[in-house]
Design a protein around this nucleic acid. Sequence first.
DNA 1: GGGGAGATGTTTATGGTGTAAACATAGCTT
DNA 2: AAGCTATGTTTACACCATAAACATCTCCCC
Lengths: 205, 205
Amino acid sequence: MTGHSTTGHYHHGDLRNALLQAAGKLLREQGIVGFSLRDVARAAGVSHAAPYRHFRDKAALLRALSGLGFEHLHAALTEAAASRRGPEQILIEVTRVYVHTVMQNPGMTRLMFGTVISAEGDAGNAPAASSILEVFLGIIKAGFAVGAFRDRDPRELALVAWSTMHGLAMLAVGEVVDAKYKDMKELDALARTVAENVIYGISRS
Amino acid sequence: MTGHSTTGHYHHGDLRNALLQAAGKLLREQGIVGFSLRDVARAAGVSHAAPYRHFRDKAALLRALSGLGFEHLHAALTEAAASRRGPEQILIEVTRVYVHTVMQNPGMTRLMFGTVISAEGDAGNAPAASSILEVFLGIIKAGFAVGAFRDRDPRELALVAWSTMHGLAMLAVGEVVDAKYKDMKELDALARTVAENVIYGISRS
DNA sequence: GGGGAGATGTTTATGGTGTAAACATAGCTT
DNA sequence: AAGCTATGTTTACACCATAAACATCTCCCC
């Protein structure tokens, strides 16, 4: 026990979470560009200096927020990977989920992968990122187990898979691909194509 | 003739370019995070309001800068693609150049692909981006010509190739891959692996 | 070649931001 | 009940983006 209340409430309740929640909403609705700590405080109904009791600075809040984003993505991927189907089908499904999740919250995506936050002592994104890689590693190893994939360093194959779907997702979220792919249906089909390509690439024989 | 001097000089010389140059340097050295228009003006030795005579606002300057970045990347890729070797070798080389170019200037990369700049009337990144896609399209079509690649919509295959190397580059620049890959040699090898995977994936048979 | 006129740069002003410090208070602990 | 600490507020400061008013340079036209 650290000596706090048992209910989890104090002055405000728990501001820390309220701030993260508010920040998440602002990020989703207005993007990362004009994102201001003072807006967050306003949205949470506290003074503009209150956040400093819970986060060392703006970057710390963003880092925490980014962590939540990684958790969300990790959960989505894990769920998609938890299927009894073969590794190929799983890879396709995971790719689609990856793209969907990323597109659903572009601001969060840019926060997570834009290195807007410089680690600075705090380990930064590294652990969260490696937990994502772990998911792909699991899929690859499962593929090995049934002899589906080429005999390579599994970490390498996992990175190949991740790179591929990540690239597609980033191009899509960066509004850099054809306007055609703004349509989610089209993008979904492209995701499938990309995934199939990965599979061809890493498959045995 | 618009009625300006013939030498291209005016008060300062040509501030517009000086500003872009200074901005580029700041971006390279200090990243996009604390990037300020006033710093740019200072670095160019003019008052903090001077840039507004050449760019509508900060975003406009960043857009122009990003355009230069796209030109640079495009030139590097074009050069790498201009080889007499087969499409497979070219694809490998282009991937390595892509990753190198991106890693050489992370700030620029984030500017180009981070959508820090919201198009806003100006067409934004779209044309520049499509000129990049054009390079891949050329490679793919050359591959078709010698019967190297699977019979697919070439645009689709080009997007697959781009996605893949872009993803690797973004993960690398986001400091999200293993620390091991901070070593350029290792990263280079990974780039080759990823490229080979693309090739396997899109190759005929 | 002299006089606008427009392009370029500066000064000044305004409202916003991140952050630090001094202050106030709520609620636990003894 | 007293006091300590966590939490929140006020005030203050330096910086930023942007706009408006002002100054000046250069070119074009008569």
